[in-house]
Amino acid sequence: MKKSLLLAFFLSSLSSFSLSVQADDACEAVLCMFSKMEKSAVSECASAEKEFFGINVFEDDDDEKFDAEKTLEKRQEFLQQCKDADKDTISKILDNFGRKQGSKE
């Protein structure tokens, strides 16, 4: 019984760590995509931009047909993980970059 409780505690703390890292990544992406939108891109933002533009959704029946609306939804879900980000800022980022196809890498 003690082992089960300990394992449950360990797994829950691991999952919260993972969510925290994702939220940090999302906040970095918000800052970097906002700076890109404002034409003041920063070289340190390459990985955050790659992560953002790496979110691409293609239609189920055709791996080559980009689905801009579903991509927008997924990118919105990602950016909203940053609880400190202003909703208007996220909205502006998505208006500018939310539907653009990124690299297939």
Results as ranks from 00 to 15, higher is better:
Met1Glu: 00
Met1Gly: 06
Lys2Asp: 01
Lys3Val: 14
Ser4Met: 02
Ser4Pro: 00
Leu6Met: 00
Leu6Ser: 01
Ala8Ser: 06
Phe9Asp: 09
Phe9Thr: 11
Leu11Gln: 09
Ser12Pro: 01
Ser13Cys: 10
Leu14Ser: 00
Leu14Met: 02
Ser16Asp: 02
Ser18Glu: 01
Ser18Val: 07
Leu19Tyr: 12
Leu19Cys: 04
Leu19Phe: 13
Leu19Val: 12
Ser20Cys: 08
Ser20Ile: 08
Ser20Met: 08
Val21Trp: 09
Ala23Tyr: 05
Ala26Arg: 03
Ala29Val: 13
Ala29Gln: 05
Ala29Cys: 03
Val30Thr: 01
Leu31Lys: 07
Cys32Asp: 05
Met33Ala: 04
Met33Asp: 04
Ser35Pro: 07
Met37Cys: 03
Met37Leu: 11
Met37Gly: 04
Glu38Ala: 15
Lys39Ala: 11
Lys39Gln: 12
Lys39Asn: 09
Ser40Glu: 13
Val42Cys: 11
Val42Ser: 14
Ser43Cys: 05
Ser43Met: 09
Cys45Glu: 10
Cys45Lys: 06
Ala46Ile: 13
Ser47Asn: 08
Ala48Met: 11
Glu49Cys: 10
Lys50Tyr: 12
Glu51Arg: 15
Ile55Lys: 08
Glu59Gln: 10
Asp60Trp: 09
Asp61Ser: 10
Asp62Ile: 12
Glu64Lys: 09
Glu64Trp: 11
Lys65His: 03
Lys65Thr: 04
Phe66Trp: 05
Ala68Leu: 03
Glu69His: 13
Glu69Val: 15
Lys70Gly: 01
Thr71Cys: 06
Thr71Asn: 08
Thr71Arg: 03
Leu72Pro: 03
Glu77Thr: 13
Phe78Ser: 10
Leu79Ser: 01
Leu79Gly: 04
Gln80Asp: 03
Gln81Glu: 15
Gln81Gly: 13
Cys82Ile: 06
Cys82Met: 03
Lys83Met: 03
Lys83Tyr: 09
Asp84Phe: 07
Asp84Ser: 12
Asp84Lys: 14
Ala85Cys: 09
Asp86Ile: 04
Asp86Arg: 00
Asp88Pro: 08
Lys92Pro: 06
Ile93Tyr: 08
Arg99Lys: 11
Lys100Ile: 15
Lys100Glu: 15
Gln101Arg: 04
Gln101Ala: 04
Gly102Asn: 10
Ser103Met: 09
Ser103Ala: 12
Glu105Gln: 15
Glu105Gly: 14
